[in-house]
């Protein structure tokens, strides 16, 4: 088995009295696709915000390889090579597609500090995600599917070692979803470790090597897609107590 690239121990986040993430342990291995699923409000996005440093932890620690990253600033973590996309797309409005991606190239792990270098790198990535034709358009005029690609492109421009995807498939039609899934697979093949939060089961089950299931802020299961599909706790969390009992008695 390959090395652990991202490790969490007792990761906890409290908002006032509400415990959004409750003492979660996780290990993500280099080169894998790690899925995180769970019902709404399970704490998945919060966990992601904790990893990238957009929220401070209430308790626990997160390590990138052997480096403790919990407590570090978000921009520092991004430069280390941990990139994320946002569930609610956050394009830099008023800038073109290419310029959006250039931001990532300028500041990311790749550290292309010269204008022309950043531009070249951004052009490659725009090509990769299939937005080459739109590269000089303002992002303000793009549709959701295209914006999701920009999210992905910007994150890729950071040249991450770990890429966190927050519901990149939500709101897409099946054809678009298929394209993004292939894209994620390609990115992973190039050696980027992927952590994905996804509601769409087909996508997570199809892509992930391993899956972690969260419910009310706690981790309730972890395993291969097949194991997760069979897990009693998971079925209960997703479909409710009654369904689970009926299944048992049947």
């Amino acid at each position: 088995m390959s090395e652990v690239i991202l490790k969490g121990r007792g990761v906890t986040k409290k908002f006032g009295g509400l415990v959004a993430v409750n003492s979660v342990d996780f290990d993500v291995y280099e080169g894998e696709i790690f899925g995180i699923i769970g019902p709404n409000g399970a704490g998945k996005t919060t966990l992601m915000n904790l990893i990238v440093g957009l929220l401070p932890l209430s308790d626990g620690e997160i390590y990138f390889r052997n480096l403790k990253i919990s407590g570090k600033k978000a921009f520092y973590i991004a430069r280390l090579g941990i990139a994320r996309t946002f569930q609610i797309v956050k394009p830099f409005k008023g800038m073109t597609v290419l310029e959006n991606v250039m931001v990532g190239a300028f500041f990311g792990h790749g550290n292309y500090s010269k204008f022309n270098e950043a531009k070249e790198r951004a052009e490659e990535i725009v090509e990769l995600v299939g937005l080459a034709e739109k590269k000089d358009e303002l992002v303000d005029h793009l549709n959701l599917a295209q914006l999701k690609r920009i999210e992905l492109a910007r994150a890729l421009a950071l040249e991450p070692e770990v890429l966190l995807l927050d519901e990149v498939m939500a709101g897409l039609n099946p054809a678009e979803m298929e394209k993004i899934m292939n894209l994620v697979r390609d990115i992973n093949k190039k050696g980027v470790t992927v952590i994905m939060i996804e509601h769409i089961m087909k996508a997570v089950m199809g892509l992930s090597n391993r899956i972690m299931v969260m419910h009310f802020g706690t981790k309730i299961a972890e395993g291969t897609p097949e194991e997760i599909a069979q897990n009693e706790e998971v079925i209960k969390a997703y479909l409710g107590e009654r369904y689970s009992k009926r299944r048992k008695s049947a």
Partner: peptide
Amino acid sequence: RFGFGLRAIRVDEDGALAMGIN
């Protein structure tokens, strides 16, 4: 790059942080 950073900050500061901008 400084100018790009500022423009990113104007639109979305969290987004800018996540892009590695101090």
